[in-house]
Write a protein that binds this DNA or RNA. Structure first.
Lengths: 100, 100
DNA sequence: TTGGTATATCGGGAAAAGTCGATATACATT
DNA sequence: AATGTATATCGACTTTTCCCGATATACCAA
């Protein structure tokens, strides 16, 4: 993953918020039936409700974050759950400390 | 400084390169008369030569980096020297590790 | 003061990102 | 099979970013 693409992914207020919300799903989202926040993450619809942007926009934002390895997705039935990608975030931290 | 603006400043290959070149000026730039790399940094013209983009573009890029507190400028005579802003970069590192 | 050099700012055209509504796809239920 | 729900993708429009050349500003030297 190109460093530029990672920083572009982070260059948007809503995407930064999403990343932050996903740090403490239970704090920011109402409970989800049949899906554990810690396990799979939060589904697109919940994130969309919270962000207040259109469904298509949020879906695209999540895939931008995913391409940057900042979140990862799990499909379960008709839902896609997103959670933080700790490896990718850790890698970014290393980039900042060594390559920047 | 808004986090988004910091990440925007980093969302460009040339700007990332500049930041990297400024880590080891002696390695990337020819010697400068009357100005110590460590002290004041590297002047705009040298950065422009190395980057191969227009003077106006580089001048703007440097001010974008400056607004994000990633570099700082010192004017000496007709030259403006830019160097890394260690405080700002350190602050970014903290943001990544705590707020992201 | 005139001219020369270094940098900054301005105005603009092309490319990319932000964002939407509409549509497609995938899955579940009846 | 038909309908309903969740998400992804598409097409379009607006705003922002990229990058340039031209011009302005600041400083220096003769």
């Amino acid at each position: 993953m190109d460093q530029v693409e990672i920083f572009k992914a982070l260059s948007n207020k809503t995407r930064l918020q999403i990343l932050n919300w996903l740090k403490s799903p239970a704090e920011y989202f109402p409970e989800q039936p049949n899906a554990d926040f810690e396990n799979v993450g939060v589904c697109v619809g919940q994130i969309q409700n919270k962000a207040g942007l259109s469904q298509s926009t949020i879906s695209e934002y999540l895939s931008i974050l995913q391409r940057a390895d900042l979140v990862c997705a799990t499909r379960v039935g008709q839902w896609t759950y997103y959670k933080r990608n700790h490896e990718g975030i850790e890698k970014l931290s290393k980039i900042i400390n060594t390559e920047l």
